[in-house]
Design a binder for these strands. Structure first.
Lengths: 195, 195
DNA sequence: GAGCTTCGACCGACCAGTTGGTAGACCTTG
DNA sequence: CAAGGTCTACCAACTGGTCGGTCGAAGCTC
């Protein structure tokens, strides 16, 4: 194992940021949660901005791998979009990381260090990139439709899913609220002649 | 005027929360911005939670008044929804309060004091309430359609608009990004036979 | 293999600055 | 003079970050 501690620090940071965002977690929180000295965290991640950016970078790396795996296993574009939505349904239902870090941090952008903002931007680009590629694929295969173009369709789906997370959080992390919003958005992309 | 200072404090708090959320603004920020002592703020709003809740409450009050005015002036439900979207387009374009406080705070919910959470919940209820009433109205008038029911349609529109704000913020407060997502969501509610 | 150095990981103690919040004096203005 | 509003000065707790130093494993030399 390369470095267990630094990985565990990233785990804690990720968890904390998902629930509290960037500004409301501290080195002391992680220190207490992990039973590790604050100085140790600074040893691995010199500044708080470094830590947050590293957590985001790892999150994006994992996402990329997961998406590649999804593309390899599931060939139907419609099913891939479905997997995206049901992934978040699961997260919210299991109360485990029930929010996209990118989305929490996005709302804090004006108060975020530049390196962190760059990662947030990158994540949004990643996400809208693979969503629009998938939609594009579905359109050419005649399985999906995107009146305003696949790029806009992707941005809209992403926005609706993020908004649904927000609504679910307001409703006390209720997965039903999320599904009620996100599912129809998915259906809306289906081509006219459906099963 | 009842109390100019307390009103100006709420103005500053609102502005700060729109751009930074709850956890990243301080009494010192307001004190500096207004040239007023920190103790003065505590005199009007004993705790930070009180201040945030009061700002939210005033925001909701203003919204309610605005919505009532809209209902009085604009009778077409479709035009009312249009007004909602173009209101935010303006805010983002003018760089003045380019985000819904409710939405910023919603993502911070797990780290928010209870009174504040209650106001956030209230705001979401207000918003989805009048949106669904408007959509309901439009459906009975045959101007709008809502396949999953007006409540879900309202929640979805709200979610998409919030997600669009997020996307716009990621893109550097770009009103075009917001419109590209929010406008089609509006069109989607239009009844089949359109102009 | 003994003795030495080097190095990354880690820690407790500490730093200056900021946090939300308080106490009490000082103005107004009725 | 009573009351509301504002101020300066203060507080303990916490913020992100630094300091000097300890530990043990790995590498080197004889």
């Amino acid at each position: 194992m390369v470095s267990d501690t630094s990985e565990r620090i990233l785990d804690a940071a990720e968890r904390l940021m998902v629930s509290r965002g960037y500004n409301a977690f501290s080195y002391a929180d992680i220190s207490a949660e992990l039973g590790v000295g604050k100085a140790t965290i600074h040893h691995h991640f010199p500044t708080k901005a470094d830590l947050a950016a590293a957590a985001l970078a790892r999150y994006r790396r994992n996402n990329r791998r997961a998406v590649e795996g999804l593309f390899a296993v599931v060939s139907d574009p419609q099913a891939r979009l479905e997997a995206y939505v049901s992934y978040w349904e699961d997260c919210i239902a299991r109360q485990d990381m029930p929010f996209c870090i990118g989305a929490v941090l996005a709302s804090e952008i004006p108060s975020l260090p530049d390196i962190v903002v760059a990662q947030v931007r990158g994540h949004f680009a990643d996400l809208s990139g693979w969503l629009s590629a998938t939609i594009e694929d579905g359109v050419t295969k005649g399985r999906l439709k995107a009146a305003q173009g696949s790029r806009t369709a992707a941005e809209t789906l992403m926005a609706t899913v993020h908004g649904a997370m927000l609504a679910a959080r307001v409703a006390g992390s209720d997965p039903a609220v999320f599904s009620a919003i996100a599912r129809p958005a998915l259906d809306h992309l289906q081509a006219a002649g459906k099963a």
